[in-house]
Structures are given as structure tokens and as C-alpha cells.
Design a protein around this nucleic acid. Structure first.
Lengths: 197, 197
DNA sequence: ACCTGAACACCGTTCAAGT
DNA sequence: ACCTGAACACCGTTCAAGT
């Protein structure tokens, strides 16, 4: 039977979840699909493009959220982190695809964050930068968190009894989001109180 | 004559600057040093560790800066960006080494930023997070900037006359730093004005 | 249109053996 | 102590040729 883009992305996601990004190779993927490596190049121009499609699959559950600009930024950040944590090496893969400009979903998310920044009163020339700053934070924080998480999971299932102390990663994550939201919010305060030089 | 760690890092930095990170392979590096690939493994445990040493070399010029906490964060961010832009794919290489926890220099820089955040009145439990948030931004922004810069340089030396319009990257970079500094500064305001819930 | 076979030009890492 | 030789187990990508 014929190979479709969907099947390829399905199989790629399965390899990612079960074995991680270092095992997600074109040859391994072809083997899993019972085709020759060359077959993949009929459907995708190169590996980067295929990884971009996997990134978009990972980001599918991240949609627009309702509410004021603060809630929208916090909500998007939270669901983005959740989506990344739902797949092995998710943060690393999406980071790479974002940097390579291969994720349409990421472009969409940056757009939503930019709109929220605009509502916050950020100068139109800088809304995209504010949005990307939030994305850099979420990707960086989550990649860190995930690598520690996966290292712990591999090393030992709770070596000593002290693994629940100090690692409320979610609370720490939210603190960082709050910091960013506050920074974005200063633009608003400045218009209201006229503190701008 | 004997091979020393310094020589290896020197040669690696030269390859990086002249051909980019994708040409910085163990085999290529060995060839340039007139040794067998295996020789490198006497001096470095693996490629990640070697790249960490290159990252530390790149970050050598990034030192502590004087002044109040706002100036220290802005100063460190600026000199960090400058250091990354001084080497081909510098941001990408340092990002990877930072994520892999292989750069001592990066740990030092995060320490300085954390100290500045503490001076800003950030809760001691969150100074490291505030510091890392700044680092995520600088690495993300600069990697983006550098990839565009290098793409433009490769494609054509000014295809049309419009290349100086809208790309004052430094001004944009500073805006993002200001956003972060403002977010960190809100902690201070809250103590002063007692706005905290 | 879609895929195979086979090649091209590489990788990182290990390790017995040499000096 | 430091390095070579040689192997192991892979990579991504291309492309004539087949169906």
C-alpha cells in the first residue's frame, strides 16, 4: 500500500516517543515503514522538513486561549509547555524546528502571543519581539526541565526518598512567565502613568 | 610535537570561524591537526566536551560588569551577544553546550546574572530562574539574528538597496533586554509600594 | 507517480597495538 | 603517556532504473 505524509509523521512520532530524537533517523524511520530511505525523499525534501512536520504534530493541541492579554500569554505558555512535555525530547525537537523556521504551528503561536502583546500596549514595532521572548523562555525552560526529567527517569526510579522536594517545576515555570508578563505590562503602566521619558 | 588541549581548541575555533559548525567534526579537526581521530579522544572524553571547551573559549571576553543591577544585566547581555556574534554559528554552538551543561563559562555568567537579580529584590528561590530567563533570551535572539545575518551574507552582498531599513538589530535586542529588566524590576516595585497580594 | 538499489561521501567512538 | 590503524556501526542524500 502507498505511503502518505501522515503515515510518515505517525511513525516518526512513535519513534520519538519510544526512543528519543537521536534514534529518529531517516534510515530508522524508513525501516519502521518497510520502505527504502530514498522513498522518504519523495514525500519530504529533507530531514529538517520532516522534523518540522513532527513539530507541527506536537503543537497541534496548542490553540488560541480566551481572556485578557495576561491570561492569554500565561495560557499559551502553559499549554505550549504541556505539549512539549508530552513527547520525548519534545522541547529539543521543536526548538530546532523553530530555529530552522520549519514549524508553521510555531509561527501561528508567535502570532497569537504578538497579538496579546499588542493588547498590552506594546509598541507595534516590538510586539513580535515580545512574543519571541516568551517563546525563547518556554523552549529554554522546558528543554532544561525535560532533560533533567529524562535523566532522572533513566538513572533510577527514585534513588533516595528526596525527589519531591524543590522540584515543583510548574510553580517555577509560572514565576518566569509572570516575570515576562510583568515586563510586557510595564509598557501599559507607562502609558497610564506617563512615566515614559 | 605533542598535542595539547589548547591546540585542539585553537584549531576547532578556526574551523568554526571559517567553515561553520557543520564542518566542525572530529575527523575534520583531526585532519587539520595532522593526527588520527582517535588521538582527540585521549584529550577529550567525547565531542560534546570538546564543544564545551570551544564555547568557553568564545565566552572568555564576557566578564563581570560594574554598576547597579540594571546596568549589570544589560551589560552582560550585550557583551554576551557580542561574543556570540564574533564567531560563525557562535550562538548555536554555545546554546548546545549550555543545554548539555558543558560550558563552565555559561555557569559563571548565569551566576553573575543571578546576583544582579538578587540585588533587584528577586526572591532568593527564583534568582537562578530570572538569570536563566535572560540567558534564554540572549541565546534565542542572537541565534535568530545570526542565522539571518549569515544567510544574507551567503545569498548576496546586498541584492537590493534596502538592507539598512528596519534591521537595527541592536536596538531591537536592547528593547527585549529592557522588557526583561522591567519584569525583574517589578519585584522591587512591589516591595516599595506594597502591591504584592 | 511512487519507490528500489546502490552508491557517494561522510559521521562518532573504541581499542588493541605500537612507541 | 600519547598516538596509530583499523574497525564497528552507523548517517543524510541522490538518482538511474524499475513498476
Amino acid at each position: 500500500m502507498q505511503l502518505h505524509k501522515r503515515d510518515v509523521v505517525d511513525a516518526a512520532t512513535t519513534i520519538l516517543d519510544e526512543y528519543g530524537i537521536s534514534d529518529l533517523t531517516m534510515r530508522r524511520l524508513a525501516r519502521e515503514l518497510n520502505v527504502t530511505p530514498g522513498a522518504l525523499y519523495w514525500h519530504f525534501a529533507n530531514k529538517q522538513q520532516l522534523l518540522g512536520a513532527v513539530a507541527d504534530r506536537i503543537l497541534e493541541p496548542v490553540g488560541e486561549v480566551p481572556g485578557g492579554w495576561r491570561d492569554r500569554i500565561a495560557g499559551l505558555s502553559g499549554t505550549l509547555r504541556d505539549a512539549l512535555l508530552s513527547h520525548t525530547d519534545g522541547a529539543e525537537l521543536v526548538s530546532a524546528s523553530f530555529a530552522a523556521g520549519q514549524s508553521e504551528a510555531m509561527t501561528r503561536i508567535v502570532g497569537h502571543l504578538g497579538a496579546a502583546a499588542a493588547d498590552a500596549g506594546v509598541d507595534p514595532a516590538h510586539t513580535d519581539l515580545a512574543a519571541r521572548t516568551v517563546v525563547y523562555y518556554v523552549l529554554g525552560f522546558t528543554a532544561d526541565e525535560q532533560s533533567r526529567l529524562q535523566w532522572d527517569a533513566a538513572g533510577a526510579e527514585l534513588p533516595e526518598g528526596q525527589s519531591a522536594l524543590g522540584d515543583d517545576a510548574t510553580a517555577r515555570f509560572r514565576f518566569g512567565v509572570e516575570l515576562l508578563v510583568n515586563g510586557i505590562g510595564v509598557a501599559e503602566h507607562e502609558w497610564v502613568h506617563g512615566t515614559r521619558a
